[in-house]
Simulated assay, not measured.
Amino acid sequence: MQPTALPTKPHYPILDGLRGVAALMVVAFHLCEAHATSHLDQLINHGYLAVDFFFLLSGFVVGYAYDDRWSRMTVGGFFRRRLVRLQPLVVLGMVIGAIFYYFQESALWPAIAQTPPWKVLLVMLIGCLTIPVPLSLDVRGWHETFPLNGPGWSLFFEYVANVLYATVVRRFSNVALGILVVLSAGLLLHLGVTSPEGDVIGGWSLEPRQLHVGFARMLYPFFAGLLLFRLARLGSVSNAFGWCSLLVVVVLAMPRIGSPAHLWQNGLYDALSIIIVFPGIIFLAASGAVHSAWSQRLCRFLGDISYPIYITHYPLIYTYTAWVATNKVPLRNGWPVAALVFVAAVAIAYASLKFYDEPVRAWLKRKVLADGSEAGKKAVAAAVK
């Protein structure tokens, strides 16, 4: 039996644009992180919260795209669609990570020089399947579940969220979903104010505490995004893209809150940003519209590169961080190279989108998603555009 081709739905262009703004902030955050001595003096201090913003966006968009389609779609069909959307770039990110790996030798990762190529290839192949690697295969030494491309951890939790949604949570009434969201908010708030580091950073290791962080950072924003989609009565907001972009940048660039003696204050900022501010931004963005052709092109471009830049930029960050650490480069001297890396990350993302991701997804959609009818072919053609 062929999968049923579902009609495509229009995007929220401002949400697409905001995803790109947050992705660019992630790159800038990671470049500045290479020069920080601790979380306390990190420039663009809260850039890590972009991951939580992505989870919330994802929950909202998944609800919009699929909540009313379950009468025509199986769980297997849902998973196929999500795999087609997400997995090609996961594979590419791991391949890029393996290619860059041996250019990242430094005192930060002394194991690199001794790691045999077969082990790197094994870690790459496991990573291409989005399976977290055990500590015995941690070729970098940072206890990462995806040591060739660190951001893979959030894609793993994205898949976990999708599994929970498709198998259980989609059946929840709004009341039941609201209870789940409130409980998850409590878990996230507890994480923020009790964190030994005073933030919600983490989730990329199989260690029990890191798994706790990862689940706390995924559960609330993803399912709060789903609840927001179900309950929101959108209004009309003027200049929504500009104001919402500014809010995203301000939240992510905010300096560290509180002193080293009061770390809980920064953790509270993190939790409240995720619980209150991010849903508000998404509500405002979904209530807005873009009218000029220039704004539409900008939002489309930012949305198009958002996922490619997120999943391909980190091998460049490893390499830049190794260069900074080896040569002890301060930011005031390293910013020209950092700017070059930033531009390179955008260029690689765009090339990955146009020459790999879009063609591969188009091929996969023809093979595994469309039915044999003329309507199915048209749906696939529309989805690829």
Rank of each mutant, 00 (worst) to 15 (best):
G192P: 01
Y165I: 03
L219Y: 05
G267H: 01
Q210Y: 06
G198M: 08
P255N: 11
L206S: 11
R171N: 14
G242W: 11
A240N: 01
A216E: 08
G203L: 09
V169I: 15
L246S: 12
I274M: 09
V175M: 05
P279T: 02
P221R: 00
S238W: 03
L211V: 15
L226T: 08
Q265M: 15
L263R: 13
V251A: 14
Y165K: 09
N239G: 14
S238G: 07
V168C: 07
L189I: 11
D199K: 13
F278T: 02
R256H: 12
F229E: 08
V248N: 04
A224R: 03
G178S: 06
T194W: 05
T167P: 03
V200Y: 02
V213N: 09
A161Y: 02
L234Q: 07
A240R: 01
M218Y: 03
S245H: 09
A224Y: 10
E207C: 01
Y165V: 05
R256A: 04
L189P: 00
Y220G: 06
G186F: 04
R233W: 09
S259H: 13
V251M: 14
A185N: 04
F172S: 08
M254Q: 14
I257Y: 06
V277G: 01
V200L: 12
R256E: 09
L231H: 00
R217W: 04
W264G: 07
N266E: 05
R171F: 14
A232W: 11
A216C: 15
G186M: 06
L263W: 07
I274L: 03
R171Q: 14
I282C: 10
L263D: 01
V277W: 10
L231F: 04
L180P: 12
F215V: 15
L247I: 10
I276H: 02
D199A: 15
V169Y: 09
H212V: 14
A224W: 08
F278M: 14
G178V: 06
S184P: 11
V163N: 08
L246R: 06
L191V: 00
I201F: 14
L231P: 01
A261M: 11
V277K: 05
L180Q: 00
G242L: 15
